[in-house]
Amino acid sequence: MNRLQLLGRWTAERMTVFVAGVVLVYMFLPIFFVGLMSFNDPTSRLAYEFQGFTWDNWRDPCSPVGMCDSLVSSLQIAFLATIGATILGTLVAFALIRHRFRGRAPTSLLIFLPMATPEVVMGSSLLALFSSAGLAGNLGFWSILVAHIMFCLSFVVVTVKARLAGLDFRYEQAAMDLYANEWQTFWRVTFPLVFPGILAAALLSFSLSFDDYIITNFNHGNTITFPMFVWGSAQRGIPPQVNVVGTTMFLIALLLVLSTGLLQRRRSR
């Protein structure tokens, strides 16, 4: 092998890592800007450039009218939607993997379709249904919740199903062999082993619901969620406190993930 080939190979080896690094930077650039802008002291409301440093936004994050109310609504909806979707989806996943029933193919299709449908279609069709049912004037918290459970459900099914499918039946047989009846086997063995999948599904649901703008926009009535608040204020100029919320959420998520990582490491030591 000559020098040129060696050089080529050296570059190729590092190329992927280099490109990967660049992509990561691309992914984190906006987060960095969100963090930066949370300290912005804008001279005009429509400014998107960093104009001056201030702690004010962090000292008083709730000063923009309605922002913290919208945040509370979003958290409530995300929390309830997560519980609803996780329970319904987990049951479906168990049925799909562990039980026999007629109509497996249409069921799978029904689970798949919401994931293959653009949000704008789901949002508008729900609105079409609600308004034809004469509910257009009563939309609000409940209709957002109903919609969020609907589009989170498929993601829960897929996530839990994957975990369940990878679960070795021998653990449950071993439990039965060791005097655990069906109920005990489920709660002592099956559930703890599937739990990481259920937790992942719940986290996914929470972030999907909390982040949703499009479907919510069609069915929100008078309820304002955090994404709706951001959208509304984007027309008039974004208050920098929005970035405080964004940064805080990112930090909480990071902390959560890091601490579970540390916990796992300590456990396996």
Binding site: P30, F210, F226, P227, V230, V242, G246, M249
Partner: peptide, 13 residues
């Protein structure tokens, strides 16, 4: 991680 910062806030960034 970026998932956990609001979609709209990131887009505005």
């Amino acid at each position: 991680a970026p998932f956990f910062t609001s979609f709209l806030v990131r887009t505005l960034a």
